[in-house]
Amino acid sequence: MRRKGERGGAGQDPEAVLDLLYGTPPADFVARREELAAAAKAAGRAEDVRRIRAARRPTLAAWAANLLLRSRPEESERFLELGRALREAYQTLDADGIKALNEQRRTVVSALTGQAAALAQEAGHRLSDAARQDVDTTLRAVLADQDAADQWATGRLESALTPPSAFPRTTGASPKPAGRRAAPPPPKTPPKDELADRRRKREQETERRAQAERAQA
């Protein structure tokens, strides 16, 4: 996970400049972007100018999620590790185990959402209820989806992330309650060739009986 720089300069690495930019509150983002782009242009870094100007201002919730990652690196790394462990566990756990993990997930997400809101408040930007909900859904997405986790780990979210409806499972099936037996397989239908052979045998038997009756008559 990157350490975020506090100051931007003409000689800075472009990745550090972008990290600095996405650490800027949304209200100041555009002005800061133009300042950094002008510095890169003055230094003759045309490609850096293009990348800086291509950056999009994050929503308040996305900025708060980025701020959480930047300000709490150790907790954020543990959170990413928790997501990896949860996604692996969901491949094999039964319904009871998944229920316990869901309760743990809700507790951790709620705590980190509160931390993000507190950090935003300290920076002078109070999160509305809607923004807090967006931070919450973003963190739930990070736990459930590897792509979402990778996006958050960059510290450059532009908008809130949306979690999947459920954790992914390799089989694509819902967990089965304990004790339920699988339904028996449907009876097999004989192949068409076998049915035709049976039909011919019945016809031959019928013909032999008819011939015998005619002979007796």
Rank of each mutant, 00 (worst) to 15 (best):
L195A: 05
S174L: 14
S174I: 03
A144I: 02
G124Q: 05
D150P: 00
R202V: 11
V135N: 06
A100S: 15
A95E: 14
D197N: 07
P175H: 08
R106F: 09
E122V: 09
A95L: 15
T162E: 06
T170W: 02
A100D: 12
A173P: 00
L127M: 13
V108E: 15
S128C: 13
A210Q: 15
P191H: 00
P175V: 11
R156C: 13
T113C: 10
T137W: 12
A111T: 15
G172M: 12
L86W: 03
T189C: 01
K188Q: 08
L119T: 12
R78F: 01
P184E: 01
T162C: 11
A120G: 13
R126F: 13
D136G: 03
V108W: 07
A131D: 14
A183K: 10
L112I: 08
G172K: 09
Q204W: 02
T107F: 14
E75R: 02
L195W: 04
A160N: 05
S76H: 12
T170V: 09
P185Q: 09
Q151I: 03
K99D: 15
D136I: 00
L86Y: 10
A149S: 05
A117W: 11
R180I: 10
K192A: 14
E81S: 08
G114E: 07
E158K: 03
S76F: 15
A182Y: 01
D193C: 01
R198T: 11
Q133G: 11
E103N: 11
T170H: 06
A95R: 05
K188L: 04
A149E: 01
A182G: 13
T162V: 15
P168T: 03
S128W: 10
A196Y: 02
P187C: 07
L82P: 00
R84K: 07
A111F: 13
I98G: 14
G83W: 02
A178L: 07
D96V: 08
R84M: 02
Q204H: 08
E203V: 09
E205P: 01
A123R: 13
D136Y: 15
S165R: 10
A178H: 14
A123C: 06
R78C: 03
L86E: 06
R156Q: 08
K188R: 08
K201H: 07
P164N: 06
E77W: 01
Q133D: 15
L82W: 00
R78L: 06
